[in-house]
Design a protein around this nucleic acid. Structure first.
Lengths: 246, 246
DNA sequence: AAGTGGTCTAGACCACCTG
DNA sequence: AGGTGGTCTAGACCACTTA
């Protein structure tokens, strides 16, 4: 995607890609809500004045990008972080003991403040921009496993408060979709090993200096616009970060 | 992929998927070598007695799986770990300072031995099976960054010696392809944060107890057969592990 | 100019889900 | 039965590479 060179533009865009862009715009504009079905391929073909196969290829790519989900016999649906079986679509932690990842959340703080320089840079904003900062724990059973520090652009999350967060059931990204119309569609993570500082060690019930996985996640919405910076510290004594390479 | 339930089989396999299986078998049998081109879609359509579009769809999936690479106007080629621009296809380390990842290799040891229980289990073999164990360093400039311990099934890597490894230019997986006909198709990684032990600390020029990224990689060849277990310890002081989520 | 992959179409039929 | 996505075909034409 990103290219340091002069990024020679495509200069030729096939029809199905133009259709893909049009569908993406509809999604972005919220014409179809997360979890709902979009119009049938046949209908869209007529509307865009192309053949059904061309619409099909556009939708194929959108499904590959995880923006849409096809269900044979039923229709094509707008992808959502809520209600899916996979509650934590972006969380790659797996318990050593196998089985599912059932986690309890505990909100530590939630305050509106000004973005430090590094946060502002990541979110493509300016230093001092209004942001929401939250911190929370994820616990497996009684054991704290993840300490997250989350930064969100204040402009997009106007009514976000600790109470609303505490009340909401289901994954946080589901709430962002439903309550704020902000959909996370992809993310980049930078992973390092770091020693636990004193405060973190206490929160995660570890000794200071214990090695932790530092996972810095930058999440993007439509148009590759960054909308969340999340700094996670993972205890990997009973869990590991799972990744697949192709 | 893995399903705890009875894994109800597909019961219906479309034509293009059967074609995909046939092409995969040809690849596995070595009918077409890595880097070479495979026959044209038209030719394969005649040979398999299906339409060109059906062959096309099969090849589309194989390209998505990174087994084949399409090049417009030239043909479709067998993917290879060698000669590609991306020398380290599976290595996700990125330098903080940006730029390319140029790494020097230094082989520490290479011996034939018997598989310990955990290694045997990972490689789907029996405890005591013949294996090759190697250890090596990767250095960025003069700084050691990665300490790898690699386990390979002895049966598949008969003539592998320290000398042959030292002589070979290009990525190790390229050598495995060219010299032993073993092609890594995909891999799973389990990542944790661990403290450096005394020996590791010396090799990586760090203090004992310094946090390291532990990356356990299990690589698979055709038919999801595990053929390499690699335990890496990454120093993340000037590099990070990069991951993309969709 | 010839060969390859890439796009687009139109139509037929199959598999799956719901009323 | 009717609608949806999924498969398969055949043919036309476009874009890219090589000779």
């Amino acid at each position: 995607m990103v290219d340091a060179s002069s990024a020679a533009e495509p200069a030729f865009s096939p029809l199905y890609r133009q259709v893909k862009v049009m569908i993406t715009h509809e999604l972005q504009a919220g014409a179809w809500k997360p979890g709902e079905s979009i119009p049938s391929e046949q209908y869209l073909a007529v509307r865009f004045k192309v053949s059904q196969g061309t619409v099909r290829k556009a939708i194929d790519e959108l499904a590959a990008d995880n923006l849409l989900v096809r269900r044979q016999g039923k229709g094509t649906f707008v992808a959502t972080h809520a209600e899916q079986q996979i509650a934590y679509r972006f969380l790659r932690l797996v318990p050593d003991a196998g089985g599912a990842l059932g986690m309890e959340r505990r909100l530590l703080d939630c305050r509106r403040t000004r973005a430090p320089a590094d946060v502002a840079r990541a979110l493509a904003g300016k230093s001092g921009d209004a942001v929401v900062q939250l911190r929370r724990l994820l616990l497996a059973g009684a054991k704290p496993v993840v300490l997250d520090e989350i930064w969100l652009p204040g402009k997009l999350f106007k009514g976000l408060t600790a109470d609303r967060l505490a009340d909401y059931k289901g994954p946080m990204y589901g709430m962002f979709e439903a309550e704020f119309g902000v959909r996370m569609i992809r993310a980049e993570e930078k992973i390092r090993a770091v020693p636990a500082d004193v405060d973190t060690a206490r929160l995660l019930a570890l000794r200071p200096g214990a090695p932790l996985l530092s996972v810095e996640r930058l999440s993007f919405t439509y148009g590759d616009k960054p909308v969340e910076l999340r700094r996670g510290l993972y205890s990997t004594e009973q869990h590991f970060y799972r990744n697949e390479l192709n």
